[in-house]
């Protein structure tokens, strides 16, 4: 009998492993979420802080369309892959509840579902879009941009004209990397296509808040895009005769915690994230 249990564990484990492997590449997420009327809800809030020495944050030279891309005359552009405030708060971290099966209806703010391309920068840098709804994209710039998606979406949309929104339905959940193929190799942003509304992007102080959470115990996770440049490919831009490199970023990192939510109360969760 003892052996039976051991075997059973082993085989179940194997089954789970295989299931995990066969699903790898699919978005980390969950299968079902039901919107209900949330009565006695609680709130989760907190701060994501940087711990340890602040890594050197890479910048790239503005090699193209400087008149549009660099209205202030800056020569290089921050890639915005890691934005740490003076108070140590880490911006652009996505904090969310894992495996929540029911709660409030989708209410992601408009601002995180609308993307602008302005001065050759994606604004905002991190977007949240509910699965099955549209990401709205436009360009404020007079030069060509293209938004080339990779990951949970593969659309490739040019923006030859200014100020016209193009909606693209985000069908699969998961992470979508954005890049521009019109020579602006520094442009980068991430879209998270999500199945439930309990997602928040930290502000410049690392602050986040999840509201209307049904009471209970949850796993809460902080997700940050990779900030290291994993590899770079140098090429010569024929137009400007400047060497440009298209950076490839390291993998995103997550940190998980447990949180208990009580009705009418605010639960505090602090994340401390670091280089390793």
């Amino acid at each position: 009998m003892g052996e039976f249990i051991k075997n059973r564990r082993a085989i179940f484990g194997l089954a789970l492993c295989l299931a995990a492997v066969s699903c790898a590449g699919r978005a980390a997420g969950q299968s079902d979420y039901t919107a209900i009327t949330v009565g006695d809800a609680g709130t989760i809030s907190g701060i994501v802080r940087w711990a340890g020495p602040i890594p050197k944050i890479p910048r790239l030279p503005i090699t193209k369309n400087a008149e549009v891309c660099s209205p202030d005359g800056e020569k290089t552009r921050d890639l915005e892959r890691l934005v740490i405030g003076a108070d140590g708060g880490v911006a652009n971290t996505v904090v969310y509840l894992k495996n929540i099966s029911q709660g409030k209806a989708m209410d992601l703010p408009d601002a995180v579902q609308h993307l602008d391309q302005k001065s050759c920068r994606y604004i905002p840098h991190i977007l949240l879009v509910a699965q099955g709804t549209d990401l709205q994209m436009k360009s404020s710039d007079s030069v060509l941009h293209t938004i080339h998606m990779a990951g949970a979406a593969s659309n490739n949309i040019p923006f030859p004209f200014q100020n016209q929104y193009i909606p693209i339905a985000m069908r699969r959940s998961g992470v979508v990397d954005l890049k521009c193929n019109a020579g602006h190799v520094w442009m980068n942003a991430e879209v998270l296509v999500v199945k439930h509304p309990y997602y928040a992007v930290t502000d410049n102080h690392g602050f986040f808040k999840l509201t209307d959470v049904p009471p209970g115990e949850y796993e809460i996770e902080a997700w940050h895009e990779g900030w290291r440049i994993a590899s770079e490919q140098k090429v010569l831009d024929v137009g400007s005769q400047v060497e440009v490199s298209r950076p490839v970023y390291s993998e995103p990192i997550t940190w998980a915690k447990k949180v208990v939510v009580r009705k009418g109360q605010t639960s505090d969760v602090q994340f401390s994230i670091s280089e390793n």
């Binding site: 193209k64 060509l144 030859p160």
Partner: peptide
């Protein structure tokens, strides 16, 4: 107006100003 020349060049020779920085989805030039 659609700015095809950015990649394909003014004369369609494939030598536009953005041509050299292009990669496919496997990061191959």
């Amino acid at each position: 107006s659609l700015k095809c020349f950015e990649c394909h060049g003014e004369k369609g020779r494939g030598d536009g100003p953005s041509a050299s920085s292009l990669r496919d989805s496997k990061e191959n030039p």
